[in-house]
């Protein structure tokens, strides 16, 4: 159905987007928890920072990443020397760009579902002998699951469709950083590339739709199981 080049674009895109959400999930949980539970006034600043990529032009995000994490930059150089992890013009960079652009979409639903949890149920768990960490793992997180799933789907879709920041930070290297939207853009630029572009466009619509429907179904099922007693 697809030729090798298309298949390569597809697998690369799915891999980059999956890496982006999986790696950012723990941090997103921590940030969402902090935003939902902390009484600290300065949390507004954290909230603004998290949402910044949502409102800033993606190219600007990509440029800032390039300046901050480029191979010759301080942080980028440290990552390269310490972990052998290079971001600029690598698939890891594409994943990082996708993660940052998807982060606000991942944090927001988790935060909302954490805020909706009745903390009296958590108090009940404490009286049953659960330490705060066990309460979080066995009560809070399971109850926040619909939000986590919604956030994962939204962030995954965002990472999959990320263009501006990716092309600025990681460029357009076939097999390395040429993800779905970048490939579509490239094919449209080339005379006679429309049919291949159309193929990818249909695939991306299908992937997005599937993700949305799946998340809706999972969320509905979880909600039905967890309707407030």
């Amino acid at each position: 159905m697809f030729d090798a080049a298309t298949l390569e674009v597809l697998t690369l895109s799915l891999w980059v987007a999956t890496t982006a959400v999986v790696v950012s999930l723990p941090l997103a949980l921590a940030v969402a928890w902090f935003l939902a539970r902390s009484q600290w006034r300065g949390k507004m600043v954290v909230d603004a920072l998290v949402h910044l990529p949502l409102v800033m032009p993606p190219v600007v995000t990509g440029y800032l990443l390039l300046v901050g994490l480029g191979r010759n930059s301080l942080v980028g150089g440290w990552f390269a020397d310490t972990f052998g992890l290079v971001f600029a013009f690598k698939w890891t960079g594409a994943a990082l760009a996708g993660a940052i652009m998807g982060f606000p979409l991942l944090v927001r639903p988790i935060r909302l579902s954490l805020e909706a949890i009745d903390n009296r149920v958590e108090a009940a768990a404490a009286t049953l002998g659960a330490s705060p960490i066990w309460v979080a793992l066995t009560v809070t997180l399971p109850l926040a699951l619909p939000g986590v799933i919604a956030g994962l789907v939204l962030a995954f879709a965002r990472a999959l469709g990320e263009f501006g920041a990716t092309i600025t930070f990681a460029s357009n290297i076939p097999g390395e950083t040429r993800t779905l939207p970048i490939a579509i853009y490239t094919f449209i630029q080339v005379p006679g590339g429309e049919s291949r572009a159309a193929q990818l466009i249909i695939v991306s619509i299908a992937v997005s739709l599937t993700a949305l429907v799946a998340s809706e179904l999972i969320a509905r099922r979880v909600k039905r199981l967890q309707a407030a007693p």
């Binding site: 009296r120 149920v121 108090a123 404490a126 049953l128 002998g129 659960a130 009560v139 699951l145 967890q226």
Partner: peptide, 20 residues
């Protein structure tokens, strides 16, 4: 001593069961 170490069985006005 924190609540989880007091070995108290607490029945609240509302059941507060775990919905999940």
């Amino acid at each position: 001593v924190p609540a989880h170490r007091r070995r108290i069985g607490y029945v609240f006005q509302r059941a507060r069961l775990f919905a999940h």
